[in-house]
Amino acid sequence: MRCSKARDYLSRDIDGLLPPDATAGLLVHLDACEECRSFREDLQTGRRLLAATEPQLPDNFDWKLQLRLNQALQQRAGETAYPWLEDEPATRRGAWWPAFGAAASVGLAAVLAVAVFMGPQRGAPVMTAAVGPAPVVATAPANEPALAPSTTATSPAASLAGRSDRRSLFGAPRGGGLYDQGIGRSVATGARVAQPGAVIDRGWSGNRLEDLQTIQRLRERNDQLLRMVYQYEMQMRTLKARLDTTGTPNLDTGDNH
């Protein structure tokens, strides 16, 4: 047996996948070849090294997981309750145009505001309101069916924040989020919301008992959220079934997004 063949066999042998007849041939080769014996030892030591150096998770992993799960569930609940308000895919070609337009309008508004307030005609503030895009008013509650919860964000801050915030069911737009990094479409698209006083009052304390309590509160909250998501999904299915039977044409519920 050649060494290259023996090493292929060795790799299968340490996984216990070498047939008995091949094992016999391999053992004969190993008796005669010191290089291949050393190869086998190295493979085994390599495995031990990998096992011994397993990376360790940070202490607050569970807490962060529950926080992110909470955010994901909130978003899912929002998407389920108001599917027609779901954002366009962010990767769509030209998706940056609306953002660019909005930024340009805001910039222009700021320049004009400075001109109006600092310039000679101080008494004409009307200009500022007329230039920028009109703030998007959260009209969602008026158009929504009865399943819309009463906790929908309707504060002025939420209204100004634009359409993506209308997906939030639980409070004001982002600003105080404890974990703001995006983690993919289901979690990161749209606005991320903080929950004032709803889930956690403080972050990771380092105190074992306190932190376990925080994690437990988050778990309970997430359990409630999941139930809510399923409740919305069921209601949405009922609503769609009713619309299908009444033959209402061309009602886009956002499923094609």
Binding site: E54, K64, L69, I183, L226
Partner: peptide, 26 residues
């Protein structure tokens, strides 16, 4: 452990681990 050895960045590995577990739940 698996993700960390793939991406070599502890913060990113933690984030992707969490995302995997969230997807399992959802």
């Amino acid at each position: 452990s698996f993700i960390m050895r793939m991406v070599k960045d502890p913060a990113l590995a933690e984030e992707l681990t969490q995302e995997t577990l969230i997807r399992v739940y959802i």
